[in-house]
Design a protein around this nucleic acid. Structure first.
Lengths: 206, 206
DNA sequence: CCTACCGATCGGTAGG
DNA sequence: CCTACCGATCGGTAGG
């Protein structure tokens, strides 16, 4: 684990700002479509300066993905540890995940989703180690739902379909649109879950 | 509609081969990560020759997306026109869509999904016109399902979640894997649909 | 972190 | 469709 080494606080701040600029630009224009000069300008530096913080442009890409994944994982694991009914836990996982994809400034995970193919194969292996933990967490949540009959069919496919439905939001969600992120998270959970016979309860209630 | 103009058959063939090479390479390495020299070599030409068929590299990208969308639309509209129950029609639409995403040589639509941001805004408008028809077709299918209670919640969100679950397969599906594309299509339809009380029927049958 | 710079590569073109 | 080429831009570096 190459955390940023023992540097002065000022340098750490500068590095973080650089990384945010990378994340935003990579998401918007793609890794290959973003130049060092774009990044330098966005971070308020001259074109040679980013290389004081990162050895190569490829290193900036890995750093963005690693930071996004480990922050996301941290938040999700906090939710997963709560004592909640599976469906309620799922709902909260969905909300957190949508936050990491769509909330303002959260460009790190989308970069991972959309610029995966720009990683060298060595770096890909490094990121896969983190991604595996991400997948495993969701797989456990999915398995719990399946055990109580709230999700049908093959468990691994169910997780992949779920991921797809959620990750796709990064493509179409716009802040200030017809639905808030909270509403979208609720709808997504309802769409993905087989509710425990709510139709029958509703019928009885009338 | 700029179809390829009245050229000799040999030239049309050459152009088609070039487009297939573009689609495969753009999908694999991205538009910005693919060079004219990559494309030329894959098509068996020298580096200046693709420009005999296309004015710019950007034109190759639009042509790939346009061809993918209009071919996909053609297949989907054939299914949509069939007289079928909504759930069965949906199942078949899913299968066709997964084919355009995952079958061998079908790289055109994935390029549209993954290289959207490389389009100039003028070209984006051209492609959106086609994409709107694609979306409308799926929206009609979704609305029919919703009318009979097989899909819950907001109709537009239901379509977007469906698209996400399906489009994501282009990311993880590998030919020769644990499940065939037919099986995945069946599982996807089952996952996305609220079946008409199959659980109760199953219980009665025991 | 800036200045000044380099070699490589890129999309594209002229002329045949 | 090939040959030969060009101007621009790119990632990256040396030296301070």
């Amino acid at each position: 684990m190459k955390k940023s080494p023992g540097k002065r606080p000022h340098e750490r701040n500068r590095r973080e700002g650089l990384l945010r600029a990378c994340a935003r630009l990579f998401r918007e224009k793609g890794f290959d479509g973003t130049t060092i000069r774009d990044i330098s300008q966005a971070a308020g530096m001259r074109s040679g300066s980013p290389f004081y913080h990162f050895r190569t442009k490829q290193d900036m890409l890995v750093a963005v993905m690693e930071q996004g994944l480990s922050a996301g994982l941290h938040h999700l694991e906090a939710v997963a540890a709560l004592k909640l009914a599976p469906a309620e836990k799922f709902r909260q996982l969905v909300r957190v995940h949508l936050g990491t994809l769509c909330e303002d400034g959260h460009d790190f995970i989308p970069v991972m989703l959309y610029d995966w193919r720009s990683l060298t194969s060595a770096n890909r292996r490094r990121i896969i180690a983190l991604k595996d933990r991400y997948d495993a967490l969701w797989q456990r949540a999915t398995d719990e739902l399946q055990a109580q009959g709230s999700m049908p069919g093959d468990a691994q496919l169910a997780r992949l379909f779920t991921f797809g439905a959620l990750n796709w939001t990064a493509r179409w969600y716009r802040a200030g649109g017809r639905k808030s992120l909270d509403e979208i998270a609720d709808e997504a959970a309802r769409f993905l879950l087989r509710q425990q016979a709510p139709a029958r309860l509703a019928r009885v209630a009338r």
